[in-house]
Nucleic acid binder design. Structure first.
Lengths: 336, 336
DNA sequence: CTGTTAGCGCGTTCAA
DNA sequence: TTGAACGCGCTAACAG
């Protein structure tokens, strides 16, 4: 808690010299430098960031706006952002919104208050026009979810292509009665996955039955996955495969199948999405589309830093690789 | 990004008046107040926290030191801290240490830099003497884990009593061959749970065999739970129950049992600890000791705020309630 | 009830 | 190579 003035006095120099030493290492003689370092050591001096940041008019803080850190998917992204932030000399401030738009706004006001220099938004839905006014004033990056209509840089995977690959895998296995558990939320990922589901079926001349399309809760809860799967498994003809837009939903579907006396994958194939820890620990190990959560966070942080450094040539869209991971919950349908 | 001076000019008053209105709402006439509010509105003014905080010599930031946000247990605590922080006008800064002591130190240096006003430490091990020097200078709270030797306020559950209850439940079910999967880490919770395991057996005149005690990895990984359980299930006489000090380990144990052809709970009972989401979604639903993670975080935050407000009479220890939750993974041992 | 003024601790001119 | 002095935007005396 010593101040720079105290260090200066202790070392017999002026504050300017101390400051120079700590910032632009230029032009300080070795001997004075040593005296100053000794003083710093002796007094346990650490620069007061409040003062430094005020002077420099920056906070060196990255704001992370997430609906809920408790969700492992977001937690992994958060982890990626945090690591990059630390590495680049920033701190990671987290703001939970519980999916509440007013809290999201509240979070962004932190930028105007100079509490943070830029923000990474997770889970913006596809109605984010209001974000534009902020993005004109402050560095903003959308991670994983984004609004295609809105011109804010974002990092994501190719949800359409990823879903297409999963669907083609199912079709190749021989499935024709493929259902989907989507969600009633308004994320771009949801929309694209559903679209790819429909398109892929059509492209393979498979009729796309509305009975096979069902929406789970906004937050992909296990519970709703389970109850929606039960509905699907009662549809005639019974689907031989269920594509779920999240692993939690897929686990719900597997549980539902078991409770109804069906075996996975013998009676019904279940495929998930995300591949986050803790959801892939159980038999049958789940076939899923893996997202690089940690890297999504990392790239978002790098992108934001570019933005904050006012670099030109910022890509509007960064797409990371997904990967279909085949495990135990999928198989060819039984004949007959 | 307007400044207070601009607001003052716009409203035709001095900065002092604006400041007064924003802080101590005392003594400003309604009409001037209105003019000022109008100016604030018009200019989209938000106070510059960098300046305010420098002036007041506080950051209004709570530092959260956690080994890994990705762990749902910590994520829930984090969530509790975050909510209280927001409510009390603080921001939550998160610092991931990956269980690295030097990074932990690095995190605490944030306090000296005035980046945060106080810190909540998760997962300090029982060798935390070095924390004392910080706790004398800064408000510090330990959450969930702590060093009993070190005089820093902490929030936790009664690990000893909780384990005792779980053990007595198993004994009451009729189990006599009870094994434990502990961990090689050095947390107080681990130590207390192991001690309670031994003591409870002794108190019920059950011999405590060292063959039944095994340590999983530091981080309670599913994998190590699985492999350690396999070892245990080969011990003769085979344990009829396995008490695991975390749910992840318990899930590993259940998987191990299945793979060895044992049924849970018919052939072997498995009990976990924590009751965090995502680990209790699978059959057999796991019998476990629930910890109030969210509340642990909440209480830690409140405690830290008391500390920061320099309140006297700060309790050194806050114990929250645990709860044994009996589900499907436990049953009486088969006779013979 | 309101304005003037002096710092908070630092970085950054400008002179020496 | 170094020091003196100013000001970042705000709060809190103190005066009026």
């Amino acid at each position: 808690m010593a101040t720079m003035a105290e260090v200066a006095r202790e070392a017999g120099v002026s504050v300017a010299t101390v400051s120079r030493l700590l910032n632009n290492q230029e032009t300080v003689s070795p001997e004075t430098a040593n005296r100053v370092f000794a003083a710093i050591e002796k007094l346990h001096y650490e620069p007061n960031l409040l003062a430094r940041n005020l002077r420099k008019n920056e906070s060196r803080v990255i704001l992370i706006v997430s609906p809920n850190v408790t969700n492992p998917y977001y937690a992994h992204i958060l982890s990626g952002i945090g690591d990059v932030a630390t590495k680049l000399g920033y701190s990671a401030l987290i703001y939970n919104t519980e999916d509440d738009k007013s809290r999201e706004r509240e979070a962004l006001e932190m930028l105007r208050k100079h509490r943070a220099d830029g923000a990474i938004l997770m889970a913006s839905n596809t109605n984010s026009g209001w974000l534009l006014e902020y993005s004109h004033e402050f560095p903003l990056v959308q991670c994983s979810e984004y609004d295609p209509q809105v011109d804010i840089p974002h990092v994501s995977i190719d949800n359409y292509q990823a879903t297409k690959e999963a669907m083609e895998y199912l079709i190749e296995l021989g499935h024709r009665q493929i259902a989907i558990i989507s969600s009633e939320n308004d994320y771009i990922s949801t929309r694209l996955r559903l679209q790819a589901y429909r398109d892929t079926l059509t492209q393979h001349s498979i009729a796309c039955s509305e009975n096979y399309i069902i929406n789970a809760s906004r937050d992909y809860s296990f519970k709703s996955g389970k109850s929606k799967a039960k509905e699907l498994l009662k549809v005639e003809p019974r689907p031989t495969a269920i594509f779920c837009i999240s692993d939690t939903l897929a686990l719900g579907a597997i549980t539902a199948a078991k409770e109804l006396g069906f075996s996975v994958p013998d009676d019904v194939t279940v495929v998930g999405f995300d591949d986050v820890e803790h959801t892939t620990m159980f038999h049958p190990y789940i076939t899923t589309v893996a997202q690089p959560c940690y890297d999504l966070g990392k790239q978002s942080a790098y992108l934001l830093c570019s933005l904050m450094r006012q670099e030109t040539q910022i890509p509007r869209q960064t797409i990371l690789d997904h990967k279909l991971i085949v495990r135990e919950s999928s198989a060819s349908p039984k004949v007959g």
